[in-house]
Amino acid sequence: MRSHVNQRHERVLEIVRRRGSLRVTELAGELGVSAVTVRRDVEALAEQGRLTRLHGSVSWPERPRPVGHGPEPTASGTEAPAPPASAAVVLGMVVPSMEHYFAELVKGAQDAVAARGGRLVLGIAHWRSEEDTAQIGRMLDGGVDGLLLQPSWERGVPSTAQEEQLLALGVPAVLVDRRVPLGGRLAGLDSVRSDHVLGGAAAVHHLAGLGHDRIALLAQDNPTSPQVREGYEAAVAARGLSAPPIVSVDPEDPAALEAAARLLYESVADDGVTAAIVHNDQTAIGVVQRLREWGLSLPADVSLVAYEDEMAALADVPLTAVAPPRSAVGEAAVEMMFARLGAGPGASAPSRHVSLVPRLTVRASCAPPR
């Protein structure tokens, strides 16, 4: 087995010596093996000083020349090629969807990579964890230098197998808009996210500041919702407010959306609720339409804050909304990745977990209670 590895190493050296510089993916193609295998070979040879490893590429090491001497001749007497410039960094990014929220985040990352002369490769998992795995494998085989990952974790929490996968990537990775679970094993990964806990709390504090003391929460069941709920519950407790039961809603199911809107209507009519926080904009607009059909108006009968702020301003009554800093999260993830790559292989710079604070924009849907 070791003899086979040694033979492959010699073949790697032969190809790089002949070509001067090439990408890891090109080298893998010539050898007929995976990019992951070649990356391991290159790292081993670079540690021995026999190759120079760049971001996503490899080159023949430049030998120092005495001052005043020209380029070093090759065995044939011709001049050896000048060392190539560093190849552009290629980052892979895996997201669960390309709906509005994710499109803005990806655009922020794409612009940040392009500004640094790199390239972003996108994979969409369609909210399927097995597709996360497939997209990550495809990108590793393609020789990406690093991965920006927004995994399709159920309720925002990874399984043991998903943790194992991220711990064995072999390239730098940044978790994007995912909270590293407390007590989990992923604390060593860099991460950047919107602080949805603070976002949920900000909505409560805004409504409480207007005088509302019984505030409902309607929330989708997705990886963001647990953090919005956490912020809501913490702010309600901090303000000493009473809260009705939290309502889960599926905006893709008309019957579920109508049932959630009906619960809010009954809470306003019979249970003293004067305000609501609705996650997300799509759900909020659907709920408002049904409340209006049943005779309630905003903000005279009920105040409402939407969470996400993608289309909240387009409602009949423009909705006050909390906006996670989607584009800034994408930009910060890229900055974090380039800092990690710039530290070099084997660098022991401490991992960073960065949280960006959402912004609340006041519109016409909120007023003091009657």
Rank of each mutant, 00 (worst) to 15 (best):
T78G: 12
A255D: 12
A312F: 05
L45E: 00
E233I: 08
M337W: 00
H9D: 03
P350M: 07
G123S: 03
P244Q: 04
V38P: 00
W127Y: 11
A112H: 05
A125I: 04
G123V: 04
S152A: 12
P151E: 13
R2E: 11
A85L: 14
L27D: 00
L296Q: 01
H69T: 15
R359V: 15
P96L: 07
V180Y: 01
Q162H: 08
E47G: 10
P325I: 02
R326P: 07
L257Q: 05
E163F: 11
L319F: 05
P172F: 07
P223G: 08
R179Q: 13
E252A: 15
R50N: 02
N280E: 13
P181L: 03
A75G: 10
M1D: 06
R370Y: 11
W127V: 14
T283P: 04
S248I: 09
C366N: 02
A328E: 07
H4S: 14
P223C: 12
T274H: 07
L360G: 03
S191T: 01
R370I: 10
R239T: 06
R23N: 11
E131C: 14
E104C: 09
A339V: 11
D270Q: 11
G184I: 00
L182R: 14
S152M: 05
P226W: 01
M1V: 08
A243W: 00
G77F: 02
S348H: 11
H279I: 08
A173Y: 01
P84V: 11
P358G: 10
S267V: 01
R193M: 05
V288H: 06
G142S: 09
E266M: 10
G137A: 13
Q165Y: 07
R370T: 13
G49M: 02
S34E: 02
A256L: 06
L207C: 00
H69P: 10
A168N: 14
G240V: 00
P223D: 03
T52C: 10
Q162A: 15
A269V: 12
R326G: 09
S76F: 15
P226K: 04
T224W: 14
M139F: 05
M98F: 08
P254T: 04
E14Q: 07
A238K: 02
A300G: 13
E233M: 06
A256W: 01
